[in-house]
Computed example of a mutant assay.
Amino acid sequence: MTAILMPPPTPDAAERRLLLVVDAPSLLHRNHHARAQSGLLDRSGRPAWALHGMVRQIIEAIEGFRPDALVCGLDDRTASIRRELYPDYKAGRAEKDPDLVDQLDRAGALLGALGLAALTPAGLEADDINASAARWAREHDWNCVIITSDRDAFAHISDHTRVLRLIDGGLHGSPLLTPARLHAMYGVSADQYLAYAALRGDASDNLPGVEGIGAKTAAILLDVAGSMDAVWADLDHDGGRSVVAALDGWAAETGVRRLGATAVRRLMASGARARYDFNVTMMSGRDDLDLGLTPDVPGSVGLFPLDVDRVRRVVGFLGVAATTELATRVLSGAAAAPAPLSAT
């Protein structure tokens, strides 16, 4: 397998240990849609194509990144603090295929049986594990790579944290986003991304943005003003005059039409500030969760190598010999013994 390459690290960053964070539901959803036609069943006869694809990609990511520790985040499928706050959260999404639901419900037990750290925060989501892992890495001076398809994770990108944004090409066709690459894509810095998303909104979560403020205007506003705190302060205390002047100055320099007065009028419209604040609340990941990581204690959950017999038994239950062999080599460091499984 071709290794997944990190961008050239700074001298200090090169000395840090690496925490790999996997948004398990992202992998399960993508593998369900990509692999459903295989009809793969585990040894008990239950659907396993999404589970197998998730496990296979986790193994490939471990082989490529060679992390010192790994945590997998899962969604609490029995309760949602965000949905309690906003019943229409994620409304409008297509109803999940029952076979996908079955595999989502079994994922945590499978990962735990394998010996990986699989965390389901009560009432929360894998996004919150991503946020907490990014904070943990910063506070412990580790590097961190988050594997997810969720754009909310872009707010965690920093000198310590990168995001491997899953797209249709799989792990090797997905971009590894750094602060510079994020800015090139959206025109905002990572520490501005949450504000940018709150202004723009997120249709996938059924969160409308501030009316009349699209992605382009949001990026320009943040670039010119520096922060939404500065914008709101100027609106509150000076009617937005400084924001208008800054935006119109930018327009004059770049040769486009002036947008200052229009942008300020939309930001001062009834409900605009409340919409922005609400989106920030909904989009902010909880970053204070206990990940249970004790990396200096040998044998702790989340560390490698894993028990070879456990790996063979658990991955072997999925019924794909090639994946069992790969898992045995990568996760336990042991040579894979022949197994009487059908290859798929």
Rank of each mutant, 00 (worst) to 15 (best):
Y86P: 10
P9G: 01
A272G: 07
R93N: 06
F304G: 03
L331P: 00
G271I: 12
M6D: 11
D287T: 07
A339D: 02
R162K: 15
A36H: 14
V320D: 13
L41S: 01
G108M: 05
L259Y: 08
T148G: 00
G115L: 09
W136Q: 07
R93Y: 02
L114P: 06
T178H: 03
H32R: 14
G64R: 09
L85F: 13
V243H: 03
G285R: 09
R66Y: 11
T294Y: 13
A272Q: 05
V264T: 11
P8N: 04
G187H: 00
G173D: 02
A225S: 14
D12P: 09
W49H: 15
I157R: 01
L110R: 04
D128T: 04
R200Y: 05
A197M: 10
S204G: 00
I81F: 14
T262E: 11
G302V: 08
H29I: 06
L331R: 10
D150P: 03
T281M: 13
A215P: 07
P179D: 06
G292R: 07
R265C: 10
M54D: 04
A113E: 05
A79R: 15
A245I: 15
R43H: 13
R162C: 12
D309V: 10
L194H: 10
L247T: 03
P298L: 06
G108E: 09
R312G: 01
V71S: 05
V320H: 06
V244A: 02
A118D: 01
G53K: 07
M185P: 08
G64D: 00
R313F: 09
V243G: 05
R273N: 02
V101P: 01
D236K: 09
A336C: 04
R258Q: 15
G249N: 09
A198G: 01
L259V: 14
V297E: 07
I220L: 12
V315L: 06
E125P: 03
A137I: 02
P175M: 11
T294I: 08
E253C: 00
I58H: 13
V71D: 04
T254M: 11
P47A: 02
R286D: 08
G53D: 13
V256Y: 08
H32M: 05
A126F: 00
G39P: 04
D105C: 13
H160A: 15
A134P: 01
L318A: 00
H33T: 11
G285D: 01
R266M: 03
L18K: 14
V243I: 08
G255K: 04
S174M: 06
L177R: 05
A327M: 07
S227V: 06
A195L: 06
H156A: 12
G239T: 02
H33V: 13
R258K: 08
R310Y: 11
V244D: 05
P87G: 01
V101E: 14
S44T: 15
L171C: 02
I129E: 02
A322D: 10
Q57F: 06
E15K: 13
G285A: 14
S332R: 14
S26I: 05
S332K: 12
A246K: 15
N130K: 11
V311T: 15
M268L: 14
P47F: 10
D75M: 11
R66V: 05
E63M: 13
T120I: 04
A343E: 11
E63D: 10
G214E: 12
D127R: 07
L40T: 08
D76M: 01
G333S: 04
T148N: 01
E84R: 12
R138F: 08
L318Q: 09
S204M: 07
D168L: 12
A24N: 02
